[in-house]
Structure formats: structure tokens, C-alpha cells
């Protein structure tokens, strides 16, 4: 059973961080939908509601998303629906249901770095920075490779540029976790391909991305890049699919998402 012995609602980030690091089992509370299933025994639960971190706004060429913005906010926000082919909105729209997405926060979703995360895969092909209270700003891809450290994710900063992007997730049933999710983006002939729910955490298919960026986007080259992505990434087996199936899916879906990006380009 999920238990919280004490509760704190700090007014300042500084205070929140202080409480967080005071004891090992002090924990930041996101929406709690996942936390509740963890059966964790939390010392002091830290609620960030008073810090006004639930914004999504444009700021000096960046889209800035506060940690307490809900997934549903990402889905419906006009700014995000327009930017990058709307992939952030799309990436979250099939997660359980509207009510769930109204409760789950962006901060918790990113900070937890779940392997199954659809959002991380989409964020990874954009120019996304994570801003931590203590750790400062860093690219999302660096954040994902860092070991878990106690910190507070304050906001995400995404460079607002002309990047075209596409996202898709492959699910056994519509409201299930993904068997695999794929995001592809293109800016100034540079391509980025990310694959998540392998079932491990989302990663960028570096070699495939490079190969695609260097070629002429012929059907053969696209096919080849998709194959490189499937070959260079590692896949695992869980109840949703075997490693071999994920690898095969990866090739098909990467190809399709590249085509999808090219489609939006021509439009």
C-alpha cells in the first residue's frame, strides 16, 4: 500500500529541494497515478502545486513546459498542436484516457524515464533541454543517460524551430502500453530517429540518423536507414512482444515515419 508519512507544500523550489534531499525516502509527488501503484513508503511527500509550474508558453525562441503541466495540457495546447507537426500532442493522446492525462504531470513522466514512455521518444527528436533545479540545464539525451539523482525537474525547454517531425506508437490494444514507439524528425537535412519501448528507454538511432542525413532520401536509402536503425538498437522481450518482433517492427515503423515526415515536408 502506498503510504506518505508527512506532506510538504513548499512555496519555493529551494525549500522543496531541501526537503527532498533531507531524507532518502522523501519524494516529489507528480500526479501520483503511477506512484500509487508503486506501493512505496514515502517519508515526506513534496507537492509542487504551489510553485505554479503548470505552464506551457513561448519564451525567447523556446517552448517552455513547466513540470506540473498535465499530459492533457500537452495534448490540447495550441502552441504544441502547431509545432513540429503536433508530435508532442500526438505522443500523449493515446495514454489511457483524458482523465488520466489530466492528472499525470510532464515533470514526473520525464523525470521517471520510463521505458514505455511515448512522450520521451517524441521529445528526443526535438531540441529538448531538461532544466533541473540542482543539475541545471542539459539536453534531454544527456539527462536520459545520467544515473538517477535526487533533483527537481523544473521545466522542459524546446527550441522552437522549423523541425518537421512524426510520431507513432504500435500498440496491441489502443489504450495499452506501446510495444514500440518511433519518432523521426528533420531539420536542415539533419535527421533524427528515436525508438522507445524497446522495451528499454527511448534512444536515438545514431547511425541510422546519420546515414539518412547523408543520403538523397531515395526509397532504397530510406529502407536501408530503417534497417540500420533496427540493427544498431537493442531490443528486449517482455509480455508485449519479443525482441525479434520489436526489431522487425522497428524497421517497418521507422521507414513509415520517415515517409510521414517527407509527406509533411511536401505539404
Amino acid at each position: 500500500m502506498f503510504t506518505v508519512l508527512d506532506m510538504a507544500q513548499p512555496d519555493k523550489l529551494e525549500e522543496a529541494f531541501e526537503i527532498l534531499t533531507k531524507r532518502k525516502n522523501n519524494t516529489i509527488l507528480g500526479g501520483c497515478a503511477f506512484l500509487k501503484m508503486s506501493k512505496k513508503r514515502i517519508g515526506t511527500g513534496i507537492d509542487l502545486s504551489r510553485l505554479n509550474l503548470d505552464y506551457i508558453r513561448e519564451d525567447n525562441g523556446f517552448i517552455v513546459i513547466g513540470a506540473m503541466a498535465a499530459l492533457r495540457d500537452l495534448e490540447t495546447n495550441a502552441l504544441l498542436r502547431d509545432a513540429f507537426g503536433g508530435i508532442l500532442s500526438q505522443s500523449v493522446r493515446n495514454i489511457i484516457g483524458v482523465q488520466f492525462r489530466n492528472g499525470v504531470t510532464v515533470g514526473a513522466s520525464v523525470y521517471s524515464r520510463y521505458g514505455f514512455s511515448d512522450l520521451l521518444t517524441a521529445l528526443l527528436v526535438l531540441d529538448t533541454e531538461v532544466e533541473l533545479y540542482n543539475g541545471g540545464k542539459m539536453p534531454l539525451r544527456d539527462f536520459l543517460q545520467k544515473p538517477y539523482e535526487k533533483d527537481i525537474l523544473v521545466q522542459l525547454r524546446i527550441e522552437k524551430n522549423q523541425r518537421l517531425a512524426a510520431f507513432s506508437s504500435f500498440r496491441k490494444s489502443a489504450s495499452d502500453f506501446a510495444v514500440l514507439n518511433i519518432a523521426v524528425s528533420n531539420l536542415d537535412k539533419q535527421w533524427t530517429i528515436a525508438v522507445g519501448a524497446r522495451p528499454g528507454r527511448a534512444v536515438i538511432a545514431e547511425t541510422a540518423s546519420r546515414a539518412l542525413s547523408q543520403g538523397h532520401l531515395s526509397a532504397e536509402e530510406i529502407e536501408a536507414a530503417a534497417k540500420i536503425a533496427a540493427d544498431e538498437l537493442s531490443f528486449g522481450t517482455n509480455t508485449r512482444g519479443t525482441a525479434g518482433y520489436r526489431k522487425a517492427l522497428c524497421q517497418v515503423l521507422v521507414k513509415r515515419e520517415i515517409m510521414e515526415v517527407l509527406q509533411c515536408k511536401s505539404n
Binding site: 507544500q9 509527488l29 500509487k36 507537492d47
Partner: peptide, 13 residues
């Protein structure tokens, strides 16, 4: 006014 899952939102919220 927004639909939420009351089983997953802490009462204090």
C-alpha cells in the same frame, strides 16, 4: 471542471 481519476489524486490536492 476537468474530469480526473479521483482514485489517483491525493485528497490534499
Amino acid at each position: 471542471g476537468k474530469p480526473i481519476l479521483s482514485c489517483s489524486i491525493l485528497a490534499m490536492r
